[in-house]
């Protein structure tokens, strides 16, 4: 799709981000701000909470959407994303391990542990897929969801034993209200990784054509798989550590973009990142408005939107080659 559509879409996302800056319990008016009439506390809210929150939404949204796309290319299945492949649950198990063993670790170390766990979980998922000879389209997400269920059962068991259920519950549903200055910056790592994904976009597209095509074109399939695995796991871990699980995003956005403009990632990846950011912004703003002054976590809003969309995909795709 040409630039003339991309720029308006970009503008729309910027507007959403702007709206996100001024929606919340404390009324911060943009007019006061520009007139210089905002008081010290307004500025404080803006700088310490609203700006970090908005930046986090944008980075997490685009990161998860792109991670979902890469997973779909690697698994060659439209229904796979980090929360239907055991990736997210593994990151959770990693978080729990940190809480149990070294709760005072700096955020970056927590993220790396969570990333190592989610990498192992995703690698396990992909190797199960390789071992299943005749894999039907729906078998793949089912295997992922079962694997995720098993991993989170282990997590819950230990969390229960060590009285950590509440802390684990906090990240199980993505919530950006906890995002404050100084506690979200790790998401820039996710951003760097999505840039890396864009640089390697052609490799992922070729890998998405399958191992035979990749080998024929001289691409080292295993290396690309490993690269994708690292990107997906690290991005997921960054998001899970800062805001918790953001479900379905990696499923909805890549599928919609693919339906409209196909899977040549060199072309579609910018769109996927942008739409991911926009969707999370919308869901988070809805969550802040609908039950004000209380908040509905973005994970819950996305869960509703996402499961409806998943059903639509299952039903609507029956008569197509997925």
């Amino acid at each position: 799709m040409p630039l003339k559509f991309f720029l308006p879409a970009l503008l729309l996302t910027v507007i959403l981000a702007f709206v996100s800056l001024f929606v919340g319990v404390r009324d911060v008016s943009p007019l006061d701000l520009f007139a210089g009439a905002a008081d010290q506390r307004d500025l404080m809210v803006l700088v310490a909470s609203r700006v970090p929150r908005t930046v986090a939404l944008v980075l997490a949204g685009s990161g998860m959407a792109i991670a979902g796309t890469i997973m779909q290319m690697l698994a060659r299945n439209r229904f796979v994303e980090p929360s239907t492949a055991g990736t997210v649950e593994s990151a959770g198990l990693g978080m729990l391990t940190v809480l149990l063993i070294a709760p005072d670790m700096p955020v970056i170390a927590k993220m790396l542990v969570a990333a190592a766990f989610s990498m192992a979980g995703t690698a396990l998922f992909l190797s199960i897929l390789r071992a299943i000879p005749l894999r039907s389209i729906l078998m793949v997400p089912l295997v992922g969801i079962m694997l995720g269920g098993m991993i989170s059962a282990v997590t819950t068991f230990f969390a229960y034993r060590f009285d950590l259920l509440q802390s684990m519950g906090a990240w199980a549903s993505g919530d950006f209200s906890v995002v404050l200055r100084g506690r979200y910056e790790i998401l820039w790592v996710a951003f760097a990784l999505t840039i890396a994904a864009y640089v390697a976009a052609d490799r992922f597209t070729v890998a998405g054509m399958g191992e035979d095509f990749s080998s024929n074109l001289g691409l080292n399939y295993r290396k690309v798989m490993a690269l994708g695995l690292v990107i997906v796991s690290m991005v997921t871990a960054c998001v899970v550590v800062t805001a918790g699980v953001v479900p379905f995003l990696g499923l909805i956005v890549p599928n919609v973009v693919s339906m409209i403009m196909g899977d040549n990632l060199r072309r579609s990846l910018p769109w996927i990142g942008l739409c991911g950011a926009a969707l999370v912004l919308v869901c988070d703003i809805i969550g802040r408005i609908i039950n004000a002054p209380f908040e509905i976590p973005v994970g819950a809003v996305l869960g509703i939107v996402g499961s409806l969309f998943f059903l639509y995909l299952l039903i609507g795709r029956r008569n197509r080659v997925a």
Partner: peptide, 19 residues
Amino acid sequence: NHLTARLTVTDLVTFGRYP
């Protein structure tokens, strides 16, 4: 040959130049 990736004919043929 069964592709899951949705590519246009031009995209596919262009990937022949990937090497």
